[in-house]
């Protein structure tokens, strides 16, 4: 008999994460893929892989999508629940670490803080205007230093002497880094300084005025970086816990939400793994109907227009209306 599983999909700015979770809430499969600016292709490829490896053993009985591309993912796979990433992350954390009080989540473009009390979210915040405290910033600096991002944390841990690097802004941090490197500081000290700068910026920006209480859970792609984890521990003066599946917590949350949703709806809206063979095309146009000039996006499923969004007034939601461009 095929095992019944829930599919959780988190389409983020930098990575697309996919998990399969069984009815006992145990993880069976996780995939951490780079979105590479093409979420549709990545999703289709992932469905391919799932079918090839697990197609015979599993039956997907519920799907949840989250992340900034959650609506797109919903359209492609047919989700039972579409949830924002803050709620998904909170659900996942509080399931696997029941007494969690603070969740630090740092992803590619977003960083968030979620405060829970008695297993209820009581406050949250996201980065406002700047990506200085996020994964993209680290990626960028790693590339500049010629260090693979995976070994960034280990190098930082080797540092003995702290080097202070300006953390407010990615541009300032970069010029500060170059300056320090020209003065002859060692690379591990600079990298460690960068980790501390990122943490300082996170606590001053996202965590400003927040009552951070232990236990603290650190998740999101950046949690792989041990240097950042240590910098957080140093700044918060408490242990920071990184869950095993730290990089797919959003997707896991979506799967948990799907499980809960299915208790109500009983039947999934999932289109099936064969969606991997469907051809999806995206065509956009600028509506000229009013001065808002909305950028409308139409999705074509096997050549047929299937959905349209991006318009403020909703006139293009009616797919019987012909697009001004073919």
């Amino acid at each position: 008999m095929k095992e019944k599983v829930f599919l959780g999909i988190d389409v983020g700015s930098v990575s697309t994460n996919i998990v399969l979770m069984n009815e006992e809430q145990a993880l069976i499969e996780k995939m951490y893929l780079r979105t590479m600016g093409n979420p549709i292709k990545v999703l289709k490829d992932a469905l391919h892989t799932l079918r090839d490896y697990h197609g015979d053993e599993i039956e997907i009985i519920g799907v949840g999508t989250t992340g900034s591309g959650r609506d797109l993912a919903n359209f492609i796979v047919g989700a039972d629940i579409v949830k924002n990433e803050i709620t998904s992350h909170a659900i996942a954390s509080s399931t696997y670490v029941p007494d969690v009080k603070t969740i630090i989540e740092i992803g590619g473009q977003d960083s968030k803080i979620i405060l829970l009390r008695n297993q209820i979210v009581c406050d949250f915040a996201m980065n406002t205007v700047c990506a200085a405290g996020t994964g993209s910033f680290l990626d960028r600096q790693a590339a500049r230093l010629g260090v693979p991002i995976e070994s960034f944390g280990d190098i930082a841990l080797k540092s003995k002497t702290p080097v202070r690097i300006a953390g407010r802004c990615a541009v300032f941090a970069e010029s500060d880094m170059i300056h320090k490197q020209q003065l002859g500081y060692s690379q591990e000290d600079i990298i460690n300084g960068l980790c501390e700068a990122l943490v300082r910026n996170y606590l001053n920006n996202v965590g400003k005025g927040k009552d951070i209480q232990a236990p603290v859970v650190f998740q999101g792609g950046v949690a792989a970086n041990k240097g950042i984890k240590r910098a957080f521990e140093k700044a918060l003066k408490c242990e920071v816990y990184v869950p095993i599946h730290y990089n797919v917590m959003g997707a896991l949350g979506a799967a948990l939400l799907a499980q809960k949703e299915l208790k109500k709806t009983k039947k999934t809206k999932f289109y099936g793994l064969n969606t991997a063979d469907v051809d999806f095309q995206v065509k956009g146009f600028e509506c000229s109907h009013c001065p808002n000039a909305c950028e409308v996006v139409g999705i074509y499923k096997d050549g047929q227009l299937a959905a349209r969004w991006g318009d403020k007034c909703g006139r293009w939601s009616n797919i019987d209306l012909d697009s001004p461009v073919a």
Partner: peptide, 23 residues
């Protein structure tokens, strides 16, 4: 995203008053 998360948060809180867990 922020607005939805805020709304979710409010709804959880209201549920909590009825002795319900987050989900």
């Amino acid at each position: 995203t922020r607005l939805e998360a805020f709304i979710d948060m409010l709804k959880w809180r209201n549920k909590d008053e009825n002795y319900l867990s987050p989900y």
